[in-house]
Design a protein around this nucleic acid. Sequence first.
DNA 1: ACCTGAACACCGTTCAAGT
DNA 2: ACCTGAACACCGTTCAAGT
Lengths: 210, 210
Amino acid sequence: VSQRKSASPKPRASYHHGDLRRALLDAAVGLIDERGPDAFTLRETARKVGVNHAAVYRHFEDKSALLAAVAEQGFVALSSRMREAVVGIPSRHTLERLREMGLAYLAFGVESPSHYRVMFGERIDDGGRFPALSQAVREASGILHEEMKEGARQGLFIAMSPRDLGVAFWTMAHGYTSLVLGRKIRAKSPKHAEEYWSVLLAPLLRGLAR
Amino acid sequence: VSQRKSASPKPRASYHHGDLRRALLDAAVGLIDERGPDAFTLRETARKVGVNHAAVYRHFEDKSALLAAVAEQGFVALSSRMREAVVGIPSRHTLERLREMGLAYLAFGVESPSHYRVMFGERIDDGGRFPALSQAVREASGILHEEMKEGARQGLFIAMSPRDLGVAFWTMAHGYTSLVLGRKIRAKSPKHAEEYWSVLLAPLLRGLAR
DNA sequence: ACCTGAACACCGTTCAAGT
DNA sequence: ACCTGAACACCGTTCAAGT
């Protein structure tokens, strides 16, 4: 009747779990993916990995610390995604690069909704706890900043600092991704969400152009 | 030592609480405002009102239903805020009206962060539970839609449906408000947040203009 | 060094019982 | 009609103890 006790088919003889930290992170993300943000609890995460719930505290100070680690991982992955999206597109094609980054941003959110929600959901890292997370956030926004610097150098944009140009772009990308994930904008399909995103982003780029 | 037991100075002699539903809603919002979204629990909310925790179920089916009611209230308030912001501005001044609506949108988020976070935070109302909430969301977005219809009639905008124009505007407003509340964009003051918002919104309006 | 078991003070939800 | 008290199956966190 109770399927909880015998959850793990291979009962993993007692040993030092190769990389428990990583296993816990993966399990946490998996839990949110599969059963929603509310299903994520430290105890359930530990259960999934097959370890006593108190063991979690050997690797994370508390629940927030685990969430912060998920968020950090997310920002790092988002950065990679955006960078990879423009590999092979010459730096002089700034607008095309921005469009690809925008698509990569949305794709990341749609494919990793759990990460995305943790990244922007509750305000973890208030007061500068988790400096590694702050750093990952800065790095992601830095990618847009750099791109805008290049565009400004080319004289593509209106009189606005590269930083503000980047923030404008990020604001739109986050707004759209967030509304799609929150089902406030209903997309019939991922493909449709992507096309609609192009439709919405184009006016902003037009407005930022000189 | 324990301040919990004697929390209510005026112990409200046993009676039928004039409007327990409303009292619970206010207490819930107050709790989130004062001590963060994590502090919101049904039991703490009931305690604040001075009622047994089980009494909550007389008025709300479950915790989600209470949150949905908070969100609904939020969308209704947001609609009022946007409507009031343009009272007295003639309908032919569409761009000015949109700018005022944008400011009202941000102001609502900054002044009612708890409401805002619940409205866009977790995805309540999935699968069309809480039709009153869906209706309140539609009404809020309808305000922008109507404004864009009027603007399109005046020939102000590029070839884009009023619906999509409204969504573009909403996307930017939500993106900015959400990033400010999540501290991803750091505003030195509410005043600064407002000025920066104007700076970011202007390019979008420029891009939407014909 | 890393993990366990038991304990503490909480949750959301249910339900028989009171007025 | 509206609320209470007790119960159930959970939480996050702590800590002494085991290997």
